[in-house]
């Protein structure tokens, strides 16, 4: 953490407690979302939409794949120095 100038205002997320609260809310809403699924009647277009937690799993896997592919495949291919075109 950088040293704060004396008397500088404390902002919302400067307090670790608030950050932890936010994360707590986030993680509990994840659990709730997973739980609700079993009380919702589905009418799917595709069979896999009926699988339990399909959307949650797809969202998670898609983003992990996205980031790994972008970082380890795309970036080494396309990254150049900032003045490449100059």
């Amino acid at each position: 953490m950088k040293e704060k100038a004396k008397g500088e205002k404390q902002y919302l997320f400067d307090k670790p407690r608030n950050v932890n609260r936010l994360l707590g809310c986030f993680f509990s809403s994840l659990v709730i979302l997973l739980g609700i699924e079993f009380f919702v009647h589905k009418h799917p277009h595709f069979p896999w939409e009926e699988w339990p937690e399909f959307y949650a799993l797809y969202g998670f896997v898609a983003c992990v794949v996205l980031v790994l592919a972008a970082k380890y495949i795309l970036r080494p291919l396309v990254k150049r120095r900032e003045d490449y075109y100059d």
Binding site: F26, S29, L30, L33, L34, I36, E37, V40, H41, K42, H43, P44, E49, E53, F54, Y55, A56, L57, Y58, G59, F60, A62, C63, V64, V67
Partner: peptide
């Protein structure tokens, strides 16, 4: 189901 599916998709993207 639509609201739930979309919310799950987005929240678990956020988790990732």
């Amino acid at each position: 189901p639509h609201v739930l599916g979309q919310t799950q998709l987005l929240f678990f993207s956020a988790l990732a």
